[in-house]
Design a protein around this nucleic acid. Structure first.
Length: 1154
DNA sequence: ATTAGGG
DNA sequence: CCCTAAT
């Protein structure tokens, strides 16, 4: 039976089965899987989106891991009609027709469904299966049609919400008249997301222009949005399913007809989503590429993601992955989202997705969206924008323009290269130290339960406290008051607009929905950053009940702050915004909570009020004080009740001048880096200054001193600092810093002198060896000399390690899952190779010896990222430091494998020279560690043993060599016939054994016979950069040699995440389950009860394994954690529990009552 | 304990 | 300036 499926670019198919695990072989696309529990719990709907380009000619196997069933899609020479008939849902047809562009229809690809038996036979699906599928299809047709490709329609749900429609009409009446309702709905949803962006954008504009004339025109939009906001959640639920970026992708599908929302949304979107280049070869390599123009790109990218608040990120996350996240780590979220997008890039490639650039491009090509197309036409589009939009948006239109341009470029020109380089740039630039997600990530991992389904009503506080809670989670609360909410919303915007620039609106709506209480929201657009917090803290200290008046108090508090001169905030607006947002959410958490308490505890009301009365004045006073100067009152109280997530800051103490001076003195005495010492000496009496604080302050001082020195007058102009730091101190700071730097430099120079000396000696010894004739008699002597050299060499190597590892920026930060170094003589084509493989532009080609530093590039292969380093050419004598040789080799040492690039047209000698140079620094290529057991002992002399007769060394020689190392007590056991060098290696113990692939380049200029000969050598690959030959072989070889193990994680009760594997490597870290856990998070390993493993390393599926189990490539692992025990490692959450809070309440209460 | 990123 | 992860 040939069922399914798809045309054009992807396969979309419903499969019903109980199999939980599957993966797709033979393609790099990501499959989007979808489970629909609502209607047919047993059946899972799977939507496979595969880049057809890459695989049109191949089989695509979808392997159901748990039962080894393979379903294969064969390309079918299908006829369209047939195809259509087959197509399950009308939805598909619809979409295709509506989108129909000549091109699409032109080349449909049809697949048929078969089954692959164990023996490889292809068996048509059985009737039963077909029936099932059919049933499923029919059934689901209505429910969710899926959809494929065309980008425009992403997912359709059959429950059309009426809400979508009006919206659509309003905003995009013209261009999309033919869209289906579903579209509209989808759009609506998308819009919501965009809206978030928009708000940001607006803010920015607003600030930038300073001329807030967005009046009525914006209002409309805003109102719409707020509506949307409400409705969306509902929609959400219905669509529950849909995952992916597609949701995010909205910008595309929206008609860009110039509605403000769309516009800004788009922009936001773009940056968020790195454009990705089509993958020509079908490799999934390209990931995050941004446009070909680095500046524009990175810039945009940064802006967008960076400016998102956590809440927004959460939205995004949900949209991307279809589930909630509790992680609050911004960085993590960002990366996660990016990755998610990234991973789906492949898919998008074919489907038109979201990616802005892409979108634009596609739109143009296919003329799917008229409006879009027009927009993309550059000036045309811009003009249009202007027409539609009021002045503030000019900015955005401009951006769009850029975008378009880049999009075009991307699309038209060699995409792959561009992508690569971009990718590289972004990736590499983000070097730094990367923080792992906190423990919360782990929770999420094993937290099967999506909270969104059943948020706890019982803990409103918690929800509220998080502040960032997504709309969804709030919904339960709001359920009852839903109607109420709606009305409130409508009203609010109006009131809002008058008071505050429309950009505040989002918050407003959120708050409303948050409590569902319909409380008036204080519109405070500007709140000073840290102050309000104190107020809250103050509030918190009192009995919760006191909060009865909270609203009032809050208002007062705010009013005080909001009266501050605007100028003060001008520069920090963005920051302030977010701060205020947070603030507000927290406040409202309180209000809400209080309200609850209030209702439940009516009787006590009076009492509280009275209490309040006494308290209030105090508070106000406190606030005022705080405002005017530093507040010591707050600081005194060490621990702020950390009731709701968030305010745990203990105290906030400004540095006084005296302290700063002391600090500077301390530094001048002890130097930087020994902070605890400084603390002991100078800050003994200041218990609240920790060494970290000192260090921090110093950092700031440094920054300040360097920043302000150039313009000397500027020093006094620092109005923000509470304690202006006198120029003299800054000066001193700078001097100290410079002194430090000089010291270090001198130190380094000394080191290099030492190194030179060592090199000299090595040379002498080598010369002596050369002089010595080789025979039995001199054997011992030679052995000794060898040992000496080895010793000296290690000395040579060690200092650099010990000292400030950084060096002169030669070293490139590690990135990706593996690292491969290109080594070779100058101009053998290393740079070219790098360019070919990664698309990085390494200044190659144009000049010959150009590569002077280490140039990184990223290869995307098999879902992993491999860092490829292009190193300067090595020349003979590199090991002694010639031509940066030492650094080069050091980098090589830090990589996982070495690609030795050789010129096929030159003699074999090069290879030997290189090998020798590498050996000189302790690199052993393609060798196994010698089988010699060696152990130092305290006593007992040297025990010498061997399991076989030794031909190269004898006991006496060993003694001598050991003697050379001043080792007199040791145990030595030869398990193989080793040489002197092997012995020395073992004794030194610091050798690095690396795999090496010899790459012969330029095979196009030599005869086929020679090529054949070269290719037959072990570990060799012949390639030609000029002709682009054999790269795939090279990559495959590389992959094989690296022995990376991809492990996919499978959250409990969910499908494995085949999008982003955890990559382990036997060389580094190992491949056991324990290593895997460590890789995710250190603490995880302690909580593991057992793991379930599917894959080649498991004997049966799934297999229960312990931490020791060794994983194979492409295994799927599910971690099952121990039941958490009370009190262990849960400190963080304890603070969230209600107990402590109550206790503290009581403590506070007591004094008041008395 | 120090270093460093980030809010 | 503070918090907290990474080292």
């Amino acid at each position: 039976m040939f069922r399914n499926v798809k045309h054009f670019s992807d396969i979309s198919l419903f499969v019903s089965c109980d199999l939980n695990l599957w993966r797709v072989e033979g393609c790099h696309g990501r499959c989007v899987e979808h489970t629909c529990l609502r209607r047919r719990p047993r059946w899972r709907r799977r939507i496979f989106r595969l880049p057809i380009l890459a695989h049109a000619s191949k089989l695509i196997n979808i392997v159901f891991v748990s039962s080894c069933v393979t379903i294969t899609f064969l390309p079918m020479v299908g006829v369209e009609g047939n195809d259509e008939g087959m197509c399950e849902e009308s939805g598909v047809e619809k979409s295709s027709s509506s989108l129909s562009s000549p091109k699409q229809i032109a080349d449909p690809v049809v697949y048929k469904l078969v089954r692959v038996e164990g023996n490889g036979r292809l068996v048509p699906a059985t009737d039963d299966e077909v029936m099932e599928v059919e049933d499923f299809l029919v059934d689901e047709t209505v429910e969710l049609p899926v959809v494929p490709d065309a980008g425009n329609v992403r997912c359709i749900s059959n429950d059309e919400s009426s809400s979508g429609k009006p919206q659509k009409e309003n905003s995009e009446g013209l261009s999309h008249s033919e869209n289906t309702e579903a579209d509209a709905k989808l759009n609506a949803r998308l819009e919501y997301i965009e809206m978030l962006q928009k708000v940001k954008q607006e803010e920015r504009l607003h600030l930038a222009c300073g001329s807030p004339d967005h009046s009525s025109s914006f209002m409309n939009v805003d109102i719409q949005c707020s509506d949307q906001h409400d409705k969306l959640p509902a929609i959400d639920e219905k669509l529950q399913s849909e995952i992916h970026l597609q949701d995010i992708g909205p910008p595309l599908s929206l008609s860009p007809d110039g509605s403000h929302i769309n516009e800004s949304g788009r922009i936001g979107e773009c940056s968020k989503q790195p454009p990705d280049g089509p993958i020509e070869s079908g490799s999934s390599a390209c990931v995050i590429c941004t446009s070909s123009k680095p500046d524009v790109n990175t810039l945009k990218g940064e802006i967008c993601l960076d400016n998102l608040s956590i809440r927004e990120l959460h939205e995004l996350f949900r949209a991307t992955f279809g589930r909630e996240t509790t992680v609050k780590d911004k960085l993590w979220l960002k990366r996660r989202i990016t990755m998610g997008l990234t991973n789906s890039c492949d898919v998008s490639t074919t489907t038109f997705t979201i990616i802005d650039n892409k979108l634009v491009k596609k739109g143009k090509d296919d003329s799917i969206q008229n409006a879009d197309g027009m927009l993309t036409e550059g000036s045309d589009g811009e003009a249009k924008n202007h027409e539609y939009e009021t002045s503030p948006t000019s900015h955005s239109s401009q951006m769009e323009n850029h975008h378009t341009v880049s999009g075009k470029r991307l699309g038209n020109s060699s995409v792959e290269l561009d992508c690569g380089s971009e990718d590289l740039h972004t990736d590499q630039r983000a070097a730094k130290r990367v923080r792992k997600p906190t423990k919360r990530y782990i929770e999420e991992l094993s937290e099967v339960e999506s909270k969104d389904c059943s948020p706890k009503v019982s803990s409103p506080v918690k929800n509220a406290g998080q502040g960032q809670t997504s709309v969804k989670s709030c919904r339960p609360l709001g359920n009852v008051p839903l109607n109420e909410k709606a009305t409130v919303n409508r009203l609010d915007p109006l009131g809002n607009v008058t008071n505050v620039p429309s950009n505040e609106r989002t918050y407003v709506t959120r708050f409303d929905s948050l409590g569902g209480s319909g409380v008036q929201v204080p519109y405070v657009s500007r709140v000073r950053r840290s102050r309000p917090r104190k107020n809250i803290m103050a509030l918190m200290k009192f009995d919760m009940s006191v909060m009865g008046v909270t609203a009032k108090l809050v208002k007062e508090a705010f009013s005080v702050h909001s009266s501050l001169p605007e100028s003060e905030h001008a520069d920090k607006v963005l920051k302030t915004r977010s701060a205020s947002e947070q603030m507000k959410s927290q406040l409202w958490a309180y209000v809400f909570e209080f309200d609850n308490a209030w209702f439940t505890a009516e009787p006590e009301k009076d009492k509280r009020h009275s209490v309040m009365g006494t308290i209030e004045p105090d508070k106000n006073m406190g606030m005022k004080q705080t405002d005017s100067s530093e507040d010591n009152s707050d600081d005194g109280s060490a621990q702020i009740p950390t009731a709701k997530g968030g305010m745990r800051r203990k105290h906030h103490r400004a540095w006084t001048l005296g302290e700063v001076t002391k600090l500077v003195e301390g530094v001048s005495k002890c130097g930087t880096g020994r902070w605890s010492e400084i603390k002991r000496l100078s800050f003994a009496s200041y218990s609240y200054r920790t060494s970290v604080d000192l260090k921090d302050k110093w950092r700031n001082l440094l920054k300040a001193s360097f920043a302000q020195t150039p313009p000397d007058e500027g020093i006094n102009s620092r109005k923000h600092a509470s304690v202006p730091i006198p120029a003299s101190i800054l000066l001193k700071v700078r001097q100290l810093a410079e002194m430090r730097a000089q010291l270090q430099r001198r130190h380094r120079r000394q080191l290099s002198h030492v190194a030179m000396g060592i090199i000299e000696r090595i040379k002498e010894i080598e010369a002596e060896m050369a002089r010595t004739q080789k025979n039995k008699a001199t054997e011992y002597h030679l052995g000794q000399l060898k040992a000496k050299i080895a010793k000296l060499r290690t000395q040579l190597l060690e200092p650099p390690k010990g000292s400030s590892g950084g060096g002169d920026g030669f070293e490139v930060t590690k990135f990706g899952h593996g690292r491969v170094a290109l080594i070779g003589f100058p101009s053998v084509g290393k740079s070219t190779l790098l360019t070919m493989l990664t698309g990085t532009h390494s200044e190659a080609a144009s000049y010959e010896f150009t590569t002077l530093t280490c140039i990184p590039g990223i290869i995307h292969y098999n879902d992993t990222k491999i860092q490829l380093l292009d190193l300067p050419g090595i020349i003979e004598g590199a090991s002694e430091g010639k031509g940066r040789g030492r650094q080069v080799i050091a980098v090589a040492k830090s990589s996982d494998i070495v690609l030795m690039v050789l010129d096929g047209s030159k003699s074999e000698g090069h290879r030997q020279i290189l090998t020798k140079e590498l050996e000189a620094v302790g690199l052993r290529l393609n060798k196994k560690p010698p089988q010699i057991y060696f152990k130092k002992k305290k006593t007992g002399g040297i025990s010498f043993n061997s399991t076989l007769t030794l031909t190269h060394v004898d006991e006496k020689l060993c003694y001598q060599i050991l003697h050379e190392y001043k080792i007199h007590n040791a145990e030595l056991l030869f398990r193989e016939d080793a040489t002197v060098d092997d012995l020395i290696d073992v004794i030194e113990g610091n050798r690095k054994y690396m795999k090496c692939v010899y790459v012969y380049n330029k095979i196009d200029v030599i005869g086929i016979d020679d090529v054949d000969k070269l290719a037959r050598q072990p570990n060799s690959v012949v390639i030609s950069c000029n002709l682009k030959l054999n790269f795939d072989r090279l990559l495959a070889k590389m992959w094989e040699e690296m022995g990376l193990v991809r492990v996919y994680t499978k959250p409990q009760g969910q499908q494995p995440d085949f999008g982003d594997p955890v990559v382990l490597s036997a060389d580094r870290g190992g491949c056991s389950v324990g290593d895997f856990c460590n890789h995710i998070h250190r603490s995880l390993v302690k909580e593991v009860k057992y793991v379930l493993v599917w894959g080649t390393s498991a004997r049966h599926y799934p297999q229960h394994c312990g931490l020791g189990h060794v994983l194979n490539d492409e295994d799927v692992v599910q971690i099952v954690k121990k039941k958490d025990k009370e009190g262990e490692g849960r400190g963080r959450f304890k603070s969230h529990s209600t107990d402590p809070a109550r206790i503290s309440d009581r403590v506070k209460k007591a004094p008041l009552k008395q």
